[in-house]
Write a protein that binds this DNA or RNA. Structure first.
Lengths: 201, 201
DNA sequence: TGTACATCAGTGAACGCGCGTTCACTGATGTAC
DNA sequence: TGTACATCAGTGAACGCGCGTTCACTGATGTAC
């Protein structure tokens, strides 16, 4: 802990910018997102970010990359908490983790899945988002006893499960699933688990 | 057809602005969307739109409203084309219409479901989006023989179906369902119908 | 039928704003000797 | 251990741009008489 940093050199501006970017995203929406805004949030001159990110796209790609990592973590955390080896229960846990992330970081979720501003050609981002997809594929592999990459029916299961949880999360975030919004957390989770289970009979 | 309009008065600027707004949205994305840009597209001074829309939000709300109407039309058109009374086939047709719309008007779809810039408090917009939701609810009512507004299980069916088709459409549009994108149209539709049927057993 | 007047629809100049980008700079840090 | 120098990280002024908003205007249309 070298708290006593010089005032001039920030120390870890890159991380600070990423953190502030998330705050700005959450507070003002992606429409108002700008490099200058993020620099102001950190309390640094507006040209400082250039040393860490080429432009707004670069920052957003890095933020989305971090988002996918945390997204994957959210699914894994639920699975750990479930403390089970049951393939079905593990798949459900992933779905609940998916929702945890969407509800916990709605701005990031929107960025990762709904924004035209992020460049998915970025290799880091591609890797992170693929890893998240692979996690769901593994859940299905465990359930079906065959890898989705080898078996079209299992791949169909992956896409069905993904579509369901993603649609549920997206509509919930968009405020278009009013009956669900009225539920408390345990009820909502049970409700989702019921719907989610239908999809992989 | 009074083609010989005066050069000064446009004739139907409101409609022209809505049309141009869709073009701008499709061409440059919602990030670059501005009232000035739309006015330029129409070939009119940048202050002209003020006579028809209070601001960008107003234009976007009107555009999203039109979007929901066309969205509903797309579902109904598929049902008409199916030429059947079978409740299950009609539900599937709605799902395919949902996809038709998303694929045919991706920018509008994104605006309607993914943008923070549209104000869902607008009463016209609320009415149009509710009508689209009600359409799906009616499909389920036909299938279950009971209105989802009276029966929680039927309402669960509505939300399951909606989540599935929306997630599928959204992921497809975001380019994240690569195996599906590789399919030709009939194959893709059969694939979707198969997934969609799982959700309302 | 003609005229006067009100209203409506669109114009274009002006404003202030935040943005991204550039650039010469300066302060801090690391390294060679 | 000290000094000189290169490199890195952040500054702040300047630029041109497109934006939304305002405002006095003008051209076209509709209506009253």
């Amino acid at each position: 802990m070298t708290e006593e940093k010089s005032a001039y050199h920030h120390g870890d501006l890159r991380a600070a910018l990423l953190g502030a970017a998330e705050t700005v995203l959450a507070d003002t929406g992606i429409e108002a997102f700008s490099l200058r805004r993020v620099a102001r949030e950190v309390g640094v001159s507006h040209s400082a970010p250039a040393h860490h990110f080429a432009d707004t796209q670069g920052l957003l790609a890095a933020l989305a990359t971090e988002g996918f990592t945390r997204f994957l973590n959210a699914m894994q955390a639920r699975q750990r908490a479930a403390a089970t080896q049951d393939a079905r229960a593990l798949l459900t846990a992933s779905g609940l983790g998916y929702l945890d992330f969407a509800q916990g970081s709605p701005a990031l979720f929107q960025l990762m899945f709904g924004s035209e501003r992020v460049d998915f050609c970025d290799p880091m981002l591609d890797r992170a988002s693929t890893a998240a997809f692979d996690h769901l594929a593994q859940d299905i592999a465990r359930l079906r006893g065959v890898s989705p990459y080898d078996d079209p029916a299992a791949m169909a299961d992956v896409m069905a499960a993904w579509s369901m949880v993603h649609g549920f999360a997206a509509l919930l975030m968009a405020g278009r699933l009013k009956p669900v919004q009225a539920m408390d957390t345990p009820e909502r989770e049970a409700f989702f688990a019921m719907l989610f289970a239908r999809v992989t009979p």
